[in-house]
């Protein structure tokens, strides 16, 4: 059976690695390196994260990309042939929205892969709602889903939305 690939991307600190750890049933392979910029955490993904989720006969490979745009070549390499791209964005960090839009533009204009936007950290006091994030990103509101990447039941929400839109 054709291997299926799902890409998780988004700016630094959006929760990409967290989502993959939540969804994966196998040990997650990561490629962390010490961060030399102030990005709010000690390490950052430099190549990819990888986990898997088995759904009956199908094995879904979940790949996380680096977040910084100097790694844009990895976005393209990983997205090639993928079922879909989940772009993660923090609802409480409007300063990361331009970077998120750059990633989405890059992926949309260079690959034939459909996308959804997963909006995280909606429990913070001041947040952009998913449809407001979609407006900034220039994507239809139904493509944005609020969810908590730490919770297993919640973590599948953006994937479900992607499949619904693809199957419609």
């Amino acid at each position: 059976m054709e291997p299926l690939k799902l890409i998780v991307t988004g700016p630094v600190g959006a929760g990409k690695s967290t989502l993959i750890r939540t969804l994966s049933e196998t040990e997650v392979v990561d490629t962390d390196a010490l961060a030399s910029e102030a990005i709010g955490k000690a390490t950052t993904t430099v190549a990819l994260d990888h986990g898997t989720l088995r759904l009956d006969g199908h094995l879904l490979h979940i790949f996380g990309t680096p977040g910084q745009d100097r790694f844009d070549f990895m976005w393209e390499i990983l997205a090639e042939g993928a079922l879909g791209v989940l772009l993660l964005v923090r609802a409480d960090r409007p300063e990361t929205l331009p970077a998120a839009r750059n990633i989405l533009d890059f992926v949309v204009s260079r690959t034939q892969v459909p996308h959804v936007v997963g909006v995280t950290h909606l429990d913070r006091p001041q947040v952009w709602r998913p449809e407001e994030v979609a407006l900034f990103l220039g994507t239809p509101p139904e493509r944005a889903v609020g969810f908590d990447p730490r919770d297993r039941e919640e973590a599948v929400k953006p994937l479900v939305r992607l499949l619904e839109l693809m199957g419609a």
């Binding site: 759904l55 009956d56 199908h58 599948v156 479900v160 499949l163 199957g167």
Partner: peptide, 8 residues
């Protein structure tokens, strides 16, 4: 996509 959705 439909098949996976059902499984999920």
């Amino acid at each position: 996509a439909r098949q996976l959705l059902g499984l999920l």
